[in-house]
Amino acid sequence: MATSEHQLPKIKGPSATTLPRRGFVEALLGAGFLATAAAFIYPVLRYFVPPQAVDPGGDSVVAAKVGDLKPNSGKIFRFGSRPGLLIQSADGQYRAMSAVCTHLSCTVQYRPDLKEVWCACHNGKYGLDGRNISGPPPRPLQAYDVQVRGDEIYVSRRREG
């Protein structure tokens, strides 16, 4: 702020002769206040309205419905920002894991003939628990927790520790 001036702006009141109609300043000010209040309140009111898109709800997603999967088959679902793989093994158990290959990030798939998880890119293979069995993958796939609630299959990240 400039300090060269010697006083606070001494506002020159409009002299009586040039004074606009008595209510003008108040009207201007009132209109301004109303407009800014509107600019203030409108976004806030809109903000209160819950959006159409459902809240992601953290680390749990509905990967599939019971019956979507036949035994000995797999399905890719969206898990946050990455794909996940839900498998119903031949004995009917559900398992879920990250579908991003730990080698070069290709999307893996379930191979019913091998009863294994397979990455098409460089022939990497993982067990049903996500462990890397053969081929290039350096690390296991991250395994997720599966819960069946009603007719929906929920997949969630394993808790830390």
Binding site: P43, V44, R46, Y47, V49, P51, Q52, A53, D55, P56
Partner: peptide, 11 residues
């Protein structure tokens, strides 16, 4: 949730 605020919630 912050991503949700930034993308989904109006304003």
């Amino acid at each position: 949730s912050v991503q949700y605020i930034m993308t989904q919630v109006q304003f």
